[in-house]
Design a protein around this nucleic acid. Structure first.
Length: 853
RNA sequence: GCGGGCGUGGCGGAACUGGUAGACGCACUGGACUUAAAAUCCAGAGACCUUGGGUCGUGGGGGUUCGAGUCCCCCCGCCCGCACCA
């Protein structure tokens, strides 16, 4: 048999699979369906190791399910709208459409080279009118149903570039290109009413049984249902703009007696009104605006406030008035944009109170504390306890206190129980060119008018200019000018485009029926949906997945679908990491630029020593990247795939190492050699039932069972370990008998079939070398014989007082008396007992014996 | 700041529902083959000690249990997400 030549083998079998259309999903099949989907990539130009990992995981599942007799849908496409295309246009003068199309072509070639079992007939790209026209229609349906609306909201504004910045384009409060301090600006934008489904999205999480718990938890926390109270504080004198009172939301109405101040967001209407009259207030508000719009920036900033001079009356304590501050840590988006501060029982309030010399009045007494001596200085007490310093409520628990507070507030007309959500409506407007146009026309006389269905799609103009600052769609000379569909007069198109999460919120439906004139058909969706197994990065744990869950419900409400949840099973994979290298000047070096030098590393070109740094997520900025194409051309796709699956469990971060790749490559070469062994018994030889050869047959059956279970549970690293174990068992049976040759054939054939989902090309080649005409891509999965997977005897540990002292071999399922006798007779136990009587013997069948003295 | 996660030999990891810690691989050491090297094959190996035996050992400290990597409490370190990156 020839030497293992990965590139020749891989090209050969990719061609065969393609010619036989092995991976095309069937329509009208009576097999059970299985929809496996990997998160589609943004076409950045080249695939990276994260893609290789993601798509390898999906491909194993797809190939395994096909072998298991399912009609598998395994599609691939392109999340093709987005910022990088516009950046390329600005930096290199290439049109975003051309850039994107070329990138797609390059990446498709790379993906095909990996031997992934996609049904390429269903490929889609979201930047084509053929795709995005459907979401324009969906949006108009949402609008009719009241699921889309317009309101003002804040954006990061770069005053030099005259453009809206994404959060990632804001670096330390400045625009990434201009370096100008970023401002917050209010813009009128489109929103989707995801909050209308807050309770449903929250409740349905429970049913997502095949989702990781951590993702379910993150979604729960993101929706953030909290029960509390809305409390009205009356201003002691009328505020600017005639404001008479302030409403706050609190989850801790029980601590109302400990209130020492009120704080409002910098963009609260009352703050805005104050700013108009008070230059100092305006200056403070302007300072808050520099923080940008990201929640992390706001919450990590030092807590600051501005004392407005206004005071409010405490609703329960007659002679108590509280000062009102504008504070940089209060978010307008949450609750009412105003809070009351109880410093003793909230850390942020305490930090604020300490900074501004406000009183700290404890009102919850921990169970182990004394009312007379309990004080709070630097650490707020947020735990359980009994209320005190709280009038009638003294002695109540926190929970009873909350109920009492709501009753008290309601009886005085000063508030009411209320449930709020952290979840905010989804802002979908983007002031960008490379996105799906929002199909709305603004007319001076008719207002906002939807583009009539017959005029859809609204297509992006090709001839746009990226040299002028601002939105290219607004700068375009003619595109925005149109006629009003209602009155026929001059009107202006909406120039914002959709958030690219819009496209990814329904692409899984388009795959079900990719040529359908309505986007997808109800029938195809009913057959294929939900996605049985979705696989992608954990970085999408909240937004993309939550938006898709919402979108599916919105499509249900607008009559497209009968479905609630799009993804029945979810697997979130970890990141691919690599060691980092820096030269003496601190410049980052690519792994291909360095080599080992004794215990350390040196730069290949100059021979100068190199500092090997931390192992980090592969990133362009730190240059710790390995190009998958280099790996595929050097070792082959099968090696890249096998290494991706070995060692690290898929949900955990993995480290890419040269040594690991070498190991995977060596293993495949070894298997390839084993399949070419001329001393194997002929095809179809009877498998032996006695002696050492039969042990190998049993080992093969155990491998079938274990690997099947491992693949189904996403334990691919264990599946690979099982392949090694079986390979070792085949090698270890070195005897030259006919029976042994037959057992080795059974062993290697089984191994080849089990390898097929993981390293499919070499498995096909081995299968052919073993004398088979069939293709594994079209072959059923091997079946384990239950009678052959269990072993007759078990090695059991024997402990004395919980420490292992010996092991005994017992028949499987031996009764207690037999186990006890064997344990007491073992040398280790006799030595330790030293003639003493055991007090107690704990026997766990087939597991452990513990002799307690 | 808030939310989520991770931490086991030199390294990646395995260990089911609390039951023999370290499967399998990598790196390493020794041996075989070779003029030599690579490749391949065989063997060894958690650390320590007074080595046919024992002690210690799953980020640190405490607890529950006959028995804890696994359960509980406290602490430390690192990573991810935070609504306009995708």
């Amino acid at each position: 048999m020839d030497q293992y030549n990965a590139s020749a083998i891989e090209a050969k079998w990719q061609g065969r699979w393609e010619a036989d259309r092995c991976f095309v999903a069937e329509t009208g099949s009576d097999k059970p369906k299985y929809y496996v989907l990997e998160m589609f990539p943004y076409p950045s130009g080249r695939i990276h190791m994260g893609h290789v990992r993601n798509y390898t995981l999906g491909d194993v599942v797809a190939r395994y399910r096909r072998a298991r007799g399912y009609n598998v849908l395994h599609p691939m496409g392109w999340d093709a709208f987005g910022l990088p295309a516009e950046n390329a246009a600005m930096e290199r003068g290439v049109h975003p459409g051309k850039w994107t199309t070329e990138n797609i072509a390059a990446m498709r070639t790379q993906l095909r080279g990996m031997g992934l079992s996609y049904d390429w007939d269903r490929e889609l790209a979201t930047c084509t009118p053929d795709y995005y026209q459907h979401e324009q229609r969906m949006f108009l349906k949402f609008l009719e149903k009241g699921l889309a609306y317009r309101k003002e909201s804040w954006v990061n504004w770069d005053p030099v570039e005259n453009t809206v910045l994404a959060n990632e384009q804001v670096v330390d409060g400045r625009g990434w290109r201009s370096g100008a301090p970023v401002e917050r600006r209010l813009l009128s934008q489109w929103f989707l009413k995801i909050t209308e489904f807050a309770d449903e999205l929250l409740g349905a999480i429970e049913g997502l049984e095949r989702w990781p718990d951590r993702v379910r938890l993150m979604q729960q926390n993101w929706i953030g249902r909290s029960e509390g109270a809305r409390v009205t504080f009356t201003l002691t004198e009328t505020g600017p703009g005639g404001a008479g009172s302030l409403d706050v939301f609190t989850t801790r109405p029980d601590t109302l007696y400990g209130a020492s101040f009120l704080a409002i967001a910098a963009n609260h209407p009352l703050a805005v009104a104050l700013g108009e009259a008070d230059p100092d207030a305006a200056a403070f508000i302007a300072e808050c605006a520099k923080l940008g719009t990201s929640e992390a920036a706001v919450e990590t900033a030092e807590k600051k406030g501005y004392k407005t001079g206004l005071t409010v009356q405490h609703p329960l304590i007659a002679d108590c008035q509280l000062p009102v501050y504008i504070a940089n840590f209060v978010l307008m988006e949450y609750g009412t944009g105003a809070i009351f501060g109880c410093p003793a029982h909230d850390q942020r309030d305490l930090d604020f109170a300490n900074a501004y010399d406000l009183p700290v009045i404890p009102v919850v007494l921990p169970d182990d504390a004394e009312a007379g001596s309990f004080t709070v200085t630097d650490t707020a007490y947020t735990g359980p306890g009994k209320l005190f310093n709280s009038g009638d409520w003294d002695g109540l628990s926190v929970e009873d206190g909350k109920r009492a507070a709501i009753r008290a507030l309601e009886s005085r007309d000063a508030g009411t129980g209320q449930t709020t959500y952290r979840l905010r409506d989804w802002g979908v407007s983007r002031q960008r060119y490379w996105g799906c146009p929002i199909p709305i026309i603004h007319c001076d006389s008719c207002g906002m008018v939807p583009v009539p269905e017959t005029d859809l799609p609204v297509e992006l103009p090709e001839d746009v200019d990226f040299d002028t600052p601002g939105n290219p769609l607004s700068n375009h000379p003619s595109w925005k000018h149109t006629g009003c569909p209602t009155c026929g007069g001059d009107a202006i198109r909406e120039q914002d485009t959709f958030d690219t999460f819009f496209e990814s919120s329904w692409y899984f439906l388009r795959y079900a029926d990719p040529a359908h004139p309505d986007g997808f058909s109800r029938e195809a969706a009913a057959y294929w949906m939900p996605v049985d197994q979705y696989i992608g990065g954990v970085e999408h744990a909240v937004l993309h997945l939550l938006y898709s869950r919402f979108f599916t419900r919105a499509l249900r409400e607008t009559g497209y679908l009968d479905l609630d949840e799009p993804f029945a099973g979810l697997m979130t994979q970890g990141m691919v990491c690599h060691q980092t290298f820096q030269d003496q000047q601190g410049k980052w070096l690519f792994p291909t630029e360095v080599e080992r030098a004794g215990d350390g590393w040196r730069e290949i070109e100059t021979g100068r020593p190199v500092t090997a740094g931390r192992i980090e997520k592969m990133s362009k900025s730190k240059r710790n990247v390995i190009d998958p194409e280099l790996i595929i051309s050097t070792y082959g796709a099968d090696t890249a795939r096998l290494f991706m699956l070995s060692d690290s469990p898929p949900e955990r971060d993995m480290e890419w190492t040269e040594a690991g790749v070498e190991g995977a490559s060596r293993f495949l070469k070894r298997l390839h050699r084993m399949a070419g062994d001329p001393d194997l018994a002929p095809v179809g030889s009877t498998v032996p039932t006695d002696g050492a050869p039969a042990d190998l047959v049993r080992a093969a059956h155990r491998a079938i069972k274990a690997i099947s279970e491992d693949i189904e549970a996403f334990r691919f690293n264990k599946a690979v370990a099982q392949l090694y174990t079986l390979a070792n068992a085949i090698t270890d049976l070195s005897d030259r008998s006919v029976e042994a040759a037959a057992a080795r054939r059974f062993g290697i054939e089984t191994l080849t079939r089990l390898l097929a989902p993981l390293a499919p090309h070499v498995a096909e080649e081995m299968w052919q070398a073993l004398g088979h005409e069939t293709m594994l891509a079209a072959s059923p999965w091997p079946e384990a014989d239950a009678a052959l997977v269990t072993e007759a005897s078990v090695e059991i540990g024997v402990q004395v007082n919980g420490k292992l002292r010996d092991t005994v071999s017992l028949p499987r399922d031996a009764v207690e008396d037999e186990a006890r006798a064997a344990a007491l007779a073992s040398a280790g136990v006799i030595r330790y007992l030293d003639g003493k009587e055991p007090k107690k013997i704990i026997i766990v069948q087939n597991r452990i014996i513990n002799v307690v003295v």
